[in-house]
Simulated assay, not measured.
Amino acid sequence: MAHFSQILVLDFDGTVCLGDGPVFVYARLIDEALASSSGGHPVGLVGDVVARFLGAGEEADHEPNEMVSAALELVGTSADGYSAAEKFARSLGITDAQLSAAYTGSRRDLAAGLVETHAPAGLGALLGSLPARVQIVLVTNAPDAGVHQQLTTLELAEYFDDVITSAGKPAGMPAVLAALLEAHQLTDHPERLLSVGDIWQNDLEPAARLGAETALIERLAAPGARPTYRAETIEELYPAITAWASASSA
Rank of each mutant, 00 (worst) to 15 (best):
D203R: 04
D161I: 05
E63G: 08
G76F: 01
G81L: 04
D96F: 03
V50S: 09
G47D: 12
A70Y: 00
L74N: 06
L216E: 12
E236V: 00
I164G: 00
L123S: 08
T95E: 11
Y103K: 10
L130W: 01
D48I: 08
E182A: 15
F160Q: 09
G21K: 11
I7A: 01
P120W: 14
V176T: 07
T242I: 10
R28K: 15
R219C: 08
E158D: 14
P131Y: 13
E213D: 03
D144E: 13
I30F: 12
V163F: 08
L130M: 05
Q150N: 15
P190A: 01
A207P: 07
A208V: 10
G47Y: 09
Q150L: 07
C17T: 09
H41E: 12
A125F: 00
D61T: 15
H62R: 14
V16C: 12
V46S: 12
P131A: 09
T152I: 14
A231V: 11
A171K: 05
D11Y: 00
V43S: 12
N202L: 06
P227E: 03
G224Y: 09
D198Q: 06
R107G: 06
R133K: 13
Y229E: 03
A125P: 10
P143F: 02
Y159E: 10
L156V: 11
S249E: 07
E63A: 15
F53G: 09
S38V: 04
S78G: 09
P190F: 01
H148L: 15
A208P: 10
A102M: 04
V9R: 03
K169F: 05
L204Y: 05
E66D: 10
P120H: 14
V163K: 03
I217K: 04
A101F: 05
A79C: 08
A215M: 06
G128Q: 12
G224N: 13
D161H: 15
L177C: 07
A101D: 14
Q135A: 06
A132W: 04
V196T: 05
T77I: 06
G105E: 08
G39Q: 03
Y26P: 01
R28I: 08
